[in-house]
Write a protein that binds this DNA or RNA. Structure first.
Lengths: 236, 236
DNA sequence: AAGTGGTCTAGACCACACC
DNA sequence: GTGTGGTCTAGACCACTTC
């Protein structure tokens, strides 16, 4: 029934922005319970096909308009922070605010960083653009190397900027990885999206000027906001 | 209540693989309705934190073990099909099967391909590894350039292989883009996942030997299966 | 105040995995 | 057969937006 309802809604040839009948109307027309209608709509909403505005109505969602971040394919320097730069060039205001900073432990991060004897610090931040939440970031690094960084981050939450300007450590990218994931309850709250909504997870390892692994970063970006592009050089 | 329930489950210090109490037990213990329990579990399941085995029980999901596909950062030739190659090197059997092939239209695809006067063909395939579904692929190209391709695809669903071996067109990558998306009902059915589950969407434009845009490809990959890595050269 | 979606209860039946 | 999760109904109350 739920599936049938979804197909009906899909095939109703509605255009983006169109409003659906209310849940009560749909329930009556199709002779099903309103909860059933609600569940069908909730699924399509999670799938990004419908936009539910509480106390207003349910609408066909417009296709997402994502901001495109171009990845440096060849550069190794200065690729760090390219998102912020690109946004600035687009006339937007990017801001990173500190959420938490604490000593923590994670086996996988340790493996990436390769610092068996160091205490690790985990710093969480929220990245926003024009006042809207875009990403939750988690930074990992040896506490000893950036001692006292938390105080600075309270003023300026941009971790890489503090690493560079305050601590004098120049970072460059070693690698980055991309995957899709579901928003966990904590992500969901910070990003203002329902639990389970897709997020784009971008992990990365940064090394210092001597090539030693220094920071490991996980960003979880709202999938409706960002897309990454990798351009290939065609003149080989 | 639902949120409270989720927090309880999260903080219950359960290890991956542990089984939760049954829905009836949870409902009774917490004095809520079983439907409420079910909804809370369904959300955490969508978020990838729980694994529900129908008629068996609900378990704490193990962290995903994703296959890592390394992106060529510098190459422009032969990067096409690198996933298949990497899988083969890993001893896995990759297979692509034709789902549909038809003349179709899409404004955005047309913009990418830049072929205003050609009829476009859309080919859909399912990419599987070791018998498991991994991705749904959608290929777009000028029908005239690959006329009669459908018959060949019925035998060998690997579109790029047919383009090269049968049609004699050598493709290379111009760009690729990465985003997270939610599985639509059709994706969900083919990939054997619930609607709304995160998928990794990888679009790409391929050009022929002369650099002319030739095929546009969208892959939607199961997020629990694949992750892409971009390595940076460090010797500059 | 009226109407919308969000959540919850109580109860029922079903499909499925496992023994 | 037994117990699991999956779905559905009927009815209720709530929070929120809009007028």
């Amino acid at each position: 029934m739920q599936q049938l309802l979804q197909e009906r809604i899909e095939n109703a040839s509605l255009r983006p922005g169109d409003q659906l009948p209310t849940e009560n109307e749909l329930a009556q027309e199709l002779a099903v319970n309103r909860l059933t209608v609600w569940q069908a709509i909730a699924e399509l909403s999670l799938a990004g096909q419908l936009e539910v505005r509480r106390a207003v109505g349910t609408f066909v969602a417009p296709p997402p308009t994502q901001f495109v971040v171009t990845l440096g394919a060849q550069r190794s320097k200065a690729a760090v922070e390219e998102t912020t730069q690109a946004l600035r060039g687009d006339g937007r205001i990017a801001q990173e605010t500190l959420i938490s900073s604490a000593i923590a432990e994670d086996a996988q991060v340790r493996e990436h960083l390769g610092l068996p004897r160091h205490r690790l610090r985990r710093v969480d931040t929220l990245f926003g653009v024009d006042g809207q939440p875009w990403a939750v970031n988690t930074y990992w690094f040896a506490d000893s190397r950036f001692r006292g960084i938390t105080a600075h981050l309270a003023d300026d939450g941009s971790v890489f900027r503090v690493c560079s300007d305050v601590c004098g450590v120049d970072l460059r990218d070693a690698w980055r990885s991309f995957a899709a994931a579901a928003a966990r309850p904590r992500d969901a709250e910070l990003l203002d999206i329902p639990v389970g909504t897709p997020v784009l997870e971008r992990d990365g390892l940064n090394v210092d000027a001597d090539g030693r692994p220094t920071t490991f970063v996980t960003r979880r970006l709202r999938s409706d906001r960002v897309r990454f592009v990798l351009n290939y050089d065609l003149d080989d």
